[in-house]
């Protein structure tokens, strides 16, 4: 895959399994949630990589692994060339000033008894940045940046609407010298009119401050609007990655194709196409071979037993699917 000149974030072979109880009360068998499996990609400085997928695809775990909010089992996470998994606590703490996250419902992360101003300033307190006067000036600047009136500093979280709370979450995430912002379903809980405001705010911040985004979402329409490149995840695996225009014009993986066709169109009497039958399998002990084989309309014998390798289709465009494997095509394997 053609790498960006100097990726800001490079993730290689990242893997995380969780153990989970399974089956009935007396089964006693332990299952393994294969949350993230051998995921690799990179993101250039100032770029937005969107990770899209449905429940259980591992996109949230992926975001938390990259910030080391949970520890990976294997793989490398490089930020500007440094493998952050090898950093000690002091070095990691210093780096955290540059890595921040905005989550779906900031209400859950805001202390209900803490004023908005205090909440936004909290990262500066924790990292002991600046004098009191400097912090106050920074607060005024941040409120302005996210489009909140100055007097909101003296309000409590419950006095704010969902969109306003999300602006607080963003202000807080930008209080330090943030370079990489992980947005995990950051606009999913918002009404559509407010959602558009927050998307536009994120776009503006990216332009003005050169931020790098890892934008995690289940919503392919929003992803189309915000991303430079898009990675599609299914049951823990990155099944396709491509520049935005290319993913929408020539999606290669059958799952990506299905995802694009399932999204409602907002055009009169145009109903989404039903491509996939059945449910998403549990990420606990996922299907063998290609994890998508139980729902794939093009399933072949090999898909049930052998996980597909990554096939490079064009610069920046790769996918994991036996249909795309040139070696297999040469051997004349068909359904």
């Amino acid at each position: 895959m053609a790498e960006p000149p100097m990726p800001y974030l490079r993730v290689s072979n990242l893997t995380k399994h969780f153990s989970a109880g399974r089956g009935g009360f007396f089964s006693g068998k332990r299952g393994v949630v294969r949350a993230v499996e051998d995921v690799s990609f990179s993101v250039a400085r100032g770029e937005t990589l969107a990770i899209v997928g449905e429940s259980g695809c591992g996109k949230t775990t992926l975001g938390r692994l990259i910030l080391r909010l949970i520890e990976a089992d294997h793989g490398r996470i490089e930020i500007a060339g440094t493998d952050i998994r090898t950093l000690d606590d002091t070095a990691m703490r210093k780096l955290r000033r540059r890595l921040q996250i905005v989550i779906q419902d900031p209400f859950g992360s805001l202390n209900p008894r803490m004023l908005i101003g205090q909440a936004i300033m909290e990262p500066l307190d924790i990292h002991a940045v600046g004098t009191n006067a400097e912090r106050r000036a920074r607060l005024a600047e941040l409120l302005d940046l996210v489009g909140l009136p100055q007097d909101f500093a003296n309000r409590f979280p419950h006095q704010l609407s969902g969109g306003q709370r999300q602006r607080v979450g963003i202000a807080r995430a930008l209080a330090l010298e943030t370079d990489l912002l992980v947005c995990d379903e950051a606009v999913s809980a918002l009404d559509v009119s407010v959602q558009a405001q927050i998307i536009n705010l994120l776009q503006k911040l990216k332009r003005e401050r050169g931020l790098t985004y890892l934008f995690i979402s289940h919503d392919i329409a929003i992803v189309r609007h915000i991303a430079d490149r898009i990675g599609v995840m299914y049951l823990g695996e990155l099944v396709e990655i491509a520049p935005r225009a290319r993913l929408f014009s020539t999606p290669a993986h059958p799952y990506t194709q299905a995802l694009l066709k399932s999204a409602p169109r907002a055009r009169v009497h145009e109903r989404p196409e039903i491509v996939l039958k059945g449910d998403i399998p549990s990420p606990i002990d996922p299907p063998t071979g290609c994890r998508f084989h139980t729902r794939c309309p093009h399933v072949m014998e090999i898909c049930r037993s052998t996980p597909p390798a990554r096939t490079q289709l064009a610069p920046g465009h790769a996918a994991r699917c036996h249909l795309l494997d040139p070696a297999l095509a040469a051997k004349g394997q068909t359904a």
């Binding site: 536009n200 929003i222 169109r265 907002a266």
Partner: peptide, 24 residues
Amino acid sequence: EGLLRSHPPVDADLAELATIPGTV
């Protein structure tokens, strides 16, 4: 009109989303 325009389309590219200022 505002509601329709603030909804990003899945099959077209837009420069910027239209928004409705303020909240309900």
